[in-house]
C-alpha cells in the first residue's frame, strides 16, 4: 500500500491518475485511426469487388484464425483479472494474471507465425510467385491481409512487453489504484478489439 507522491506538474495523485487514464484513452483513439486507414482500404476492395474478395479470403485458414480469436479474448480476460487483483490488494495474483496474459499473447504470435509459415510455403507472400491467384485483386487482398495482421502483430508484441514490464514492477503491483496496470490492460483490450474487427473482415469474409 505504498502511497506515492504526485509527480510534477500535478498537485495530487488523483488528478495524476485521471490524467494518465485520459492520456491512454486519447492515444488509443489515435491507434484506432491508424488501423482505420487499413480498414478503409479493405472495405473499398470488398465493396468494389465482392466476388474476388470472398474467393481470396477463403485462402486463409479459418481454424487458426478462430483459435487465435479465442486465445486473444482469453488473454484480455487475464489482463482484466490483473487489474481486479491489483485493486483488491492481491499483488501476487495480479502478477500471475499478467504473466498469463503475456503467455497467451505469445501463443497468439506463435499461431500467427505458424500460419504465416504455411502461407509462405503456399507462395501467398507478397512478391512471391502469385500462382494461386486468378487476378491482381486476390493478390491485393493477401497483401492487405499481411499488412493488417503484421501491424496488429506488432501491437501484440508491444502489449506483451508492456504487460511484462508491469508484472515486474513492484510499485505498480502494489498500487491499489492500478494506474499502470489499468492503462496497460486498456492498451491490451484495444489490441484485442482491433483483432475482433480484423477476424470477420479477413477470415469470416471467406465463408460462403
Amino acid at each position: 500500500m505504498t502511497e506515492q507522491a504526485a509527480e510534477e506538474p500535478f498537485h495530487d495523485t488523483d488528478r495524476q491518475e485521471q490524467a494518465d487514464r485520459l492520456g491512454m484513452l486519447v492515444f488509443l483513439a489515435s491507434e484506432i485511426m491508424l488501423f482505420g486507414g487499413i480498414f478503409a482500404a479493405t472495405m473499398a476492395l470488398r465493396i468494389q469487388h465482392p466476388q474476388d474478395y470472398m474467393k481470396a479470403a477463403s485462402h486463409l485458414r479459418l481454424a487458426l484464425g478462430t483459435a487465435n480469436t479465442a486465445i486473444l479474448l482469453t488473454s484480455s480476460l487475464a489482463a482484466a483479472l490483473a487489474v481486479e487483483g491489483a485493486r483488491s490488494g492481491r499483488s501476487r495474483w495480479a502478477a500471475r494474471a499478467l504473466a498469463a496474459a503475456c503467455l497467451l499473447g505469445t501463443a497468439f504470435l506463435a499461431v500467427k507465425g505458424y500460419e504465416y509459415a504455411g502461407e509462405y510455403r503456399e507462395g501467398l507472400m507478397p512478391g512471391t510467385a502469385a500462382a494461386h491467384f486468378s487476378g491482381p485483386l486476390q493478390r491485393l487482398f493477401m497483401d492487405l491481409y499481411f499488412l493488417a495482421t503484421g501491424l496488429h502483430a506488432f501491437h501484440v508484441l508491444t502489449g506483451i512487453v508492456l504487460m511484462l514490464t508491469a508484472a515486474l514492477n513492484r510499485t505498480a503491483l502494489h498500487d491499489r489504484r492500478a494506474v499502470l496496470i489499468g492503462n496497460v490492460a486498456l492498451y491490451w483490450h484495444l489490441v484485442d478489439i482491433v483483432w475482433i474487427f480484423l477476424f470477420p473482415t479477413l477470415y469470416l469474409a471467406g465463408v460462403p
Binding site: A29, S30, E31, M33, L34, F35, G36, G37, I38, A41, P126, G127, P136, R139, L140, D143, L144, F146, L147, L151
Partner: peptide
C-alpha cells in the same frame, strides 16, 4: 485523429515501393 491516417497511408506507399504490395 488525422495524423495516424497519414502514417498508415505513407506506410502503404513505402510498402508498395519496397515490397510491391500494390494497394
Amino acid at each position: 485523429l488525422a495524423t495516424p491516417v497519414l502514417a498508415i497511408t505513407l506506410l502503404l506507399v513505402a510498402a508498395e515501393r519496397l515490397f510491391g504490395i500494390g494497394v
